[in-house]
């Protein structure tokens, strides 16, 4: 059985757990505990180790989805989770401009781990206060070739679209490597 993995990263409360939970065929395995920091009490509990979801492709291939912990004190997990990833998704809560700087920092950190394709998911686009994805592109200083996609992490079609766009980006990178 071959296993490949994708990493779902992003700031605290950006929707990573919901994203994985929406598409995973198993209940998301996550280690959660009560929030201790007052600044992070907008959620009852948060991911402290990782979220883990699975999509079985066939009897020889399985895709694992790993969600990174959203809190800074668990940064040390990122490098471990990023090893061998096929690609990664950066989740951004489009309604919380106070998290955009953190999203940029996370994105740059993951970019530095490996030249792996990634897409940015502008989450919570179903909410009135959501910033436009193209505005987020400017804020996050994304290169033109990086895809930033509208996302609603609790909507299966939306999550499928994000993963498919990431896979298309991976294919494009393979094509470029072939042509090089």
């Amino acid at each position: 059985m071959q296993a490949v993995k994708m990493v779902i990263t992003g700031p605290f409360s950006s929707g990573k757990t919901e994203f994985i939970g929406t598409i995973s065929e198993i209940d998301v395995v996550s280690t959660e505990r009560k929030i201790s920091s007052s600044a992070e009490k907008i959620k009852e509990s948060t991911t402290v180790a990782m979220d883990f979801g699975r999509i079985t492709v066939d009897e020889d291939l399985v895709l694992y989805l790993f969600g990174t912990p959203g809190q800074r004190r668990f940064d040390f997990m990122w490098d471990i989770l990023s090893q061998g990833m096929l690609g990664f998704v950066v989740m951004v809560d489009s309604t919380k401009p106070e998290t955009f700087r953190e999203a940029k920092r996370i994105l740059e950190t993951f970019e530095s781990y490996a030249a792996t394709p990634y897409v940015v998911a502008a989450n919570k686009q179903d909410q009135e206060d959501a910033w436009d994805p193209e505005d987020l592109r400017i804020i996050l200083r994304l290169r033109p070739e990086v895809k930033i996609l509208p996302c609603v992490a609790i909507d299966k079609e939306s999550v499928k679209n994000i993963l498919l766009e990431l896979l298309y980006s991976i294919l494009e990178q393979l094509d470029e490597e072939d042509n090089a």
Binding site: Q2, V4, K5, L61, L164
Partner: peptide, 26 residues
Amino acid sequence: RAKSETKEQSPAEKRSVVTRLIDRIR
């Protein structure tokens, strides 16, 4: 580590994996 991490895949193998993933997610 998963198999994909310990063994370097050829581009053709990698392309096959990605294509199968696309079909499955669709």
